[in-house]
């Protein structure tokens, strides 16, 4: 019974809408980056944003973060327009995990995570004891309790990404945006990061919008029982959006990435219930121009 439900959850959108982009346009001077982007993200899901370099993924994320302002169209979170929200109000709705954090000073890990509580403290005041407790719990949830008193300059790339995830969690925002969070991680740390995301979505009910260069991550999340969606961006537009099985196809990879790829599927591994799907890229297609 429970298995059937989670299998369904993996394919169907769950919960009400939390993020909505309507006809969003954005241009740097005359270079159009986003063209009529529409996207809807529902609570408790993970949406993987994929597409070639420069297709507009990061710009889309910046528009949701309020760092960039769309020239037309509307970004709304929980029904509130992003451009009307002050940074602190917005930060209570959206948290952010960057691709890589440029370390400046050797802040201790628990101090770094505590910074996630900034939006919850009043003007000019610093986080209080409740905030410290919040940060401590976020650190525990990300499984980095042993790092709490280490300076962040001494951490490895994988440990640092977990710290940033803990900071986003401490922010207590229902939506977490991630911009290629696993781009610099090795196999194990990438898996560890994905497993933590899974846990946060299924146990805590957070919503994740994640730009990624690894489409297989969407399969992985769906196999783990997370309600997963894939949005493919191409030349500033959302090319296709849907569950991983229907979107991540050999035709899509040929059309968007200009590569020949094979979709492999094998039986559930021992102890698993779902078949394993993986995309294996084979070769680039020179004859066809990518991104058409």
């Amino acid at each position: 019974m429970r298995d059937v439900q989670t299998v369904r959850a993996a394919d169907a959108p769950a919960g009400e809408e939390i993020l909505r982009l309507d006809g969003v346009h954005f241009a740097y001077d005359h270079h159009k980056v986003l063209v009529d982007v529409g996207l809807s993200v529902r609570r408790g899901t993970c949406t993987c944003l994929i597409g070639i370099n420069g297709c507009g993924k990061s710009t889309l994320i910046d528009c949701v973060l309020g760092v960039l302002h769309p020239s037309a169209g509307e970004v709304s979170i929980d029904g509130a327009h992003v451009r009307h929200l002050k940074p602190a109000r917005l930060a209570r709705k959206v948290a952010y995990v960057p691709q890589i954090h440029e370390r400046s000073f050797p802040y201790l890990v628990d101090h770094m995570v505590l910074m996630g509580r900034t939006a919850h403290s009043r003007l000019l005041s610093a986080p209080d004891r409740d905030d410290r407790e919040f940060a401590r719990r976020a650190i525990e949830e990300c499984g980095i309790g042993h790092l709490a008193k280490r300076p962040c300059t001494s951490l490895s790339g994988g440990e640092m990404q977990m710290v940033l995830l803990a900071r986003a969690l401490a922010q207590d925002a229902p939506l977490i945006l991630m911009d290629e969070p696993t781009a610099h991680l090795d196999f194990k740390n990438e898996l560890l990061f994905l497993e933590t995301i899974e846990r946060l979505i299924t146990a805590r009910g957070v919503t994740v919008l994640m730009a990624t260069h690894a489409p297989n991550q969407a399969f992985h999340l769906a196999e783990a029982g997370v309600s997963t969606r894939v949005a493919v961006m191409n030349r500033g537009r959302i090319w296709q959006e849907g569950p991983p099985r229907t979107v991540l196809t050999e035709e899509m990879l040929r059309a968007v990435y200009g590569i020949e790829a094979h979709l492999l599927e094998c039986d559930p591994p021992p102890g698993g219930t779902r078949p394993i799907r993986q995309i294996v890229p084979r070769r680039t297609l020179r004859a066809e121009r990518p991104g058409l």
């Binding site: 910046d62 973060l65 309020g66 760092v67 002050k86 940074p87 602190a88 109000r89 917005l90 930060a91 209570r92 959206v94 948290a95 952010y96 960057p98 954090h101 440029e102 400046s104 000073f105 802040y107 101090h111 910074m115 996630g116 900034t118 939006a119 403290s121 000019l124 005041s125 610093a126 986080p127 900071r167 922010q171 945006l177």
Partner: peptide, 23 residues
Amino acid sequence: LASSWRIDVLSMGDKEARSLGVN
């Protein structure tokens, strides 16, 4: 002295500071 906490946050870089709720 009054803005010392915000200086910590600003030292994260503009984009992260903004996403943490600091203009």
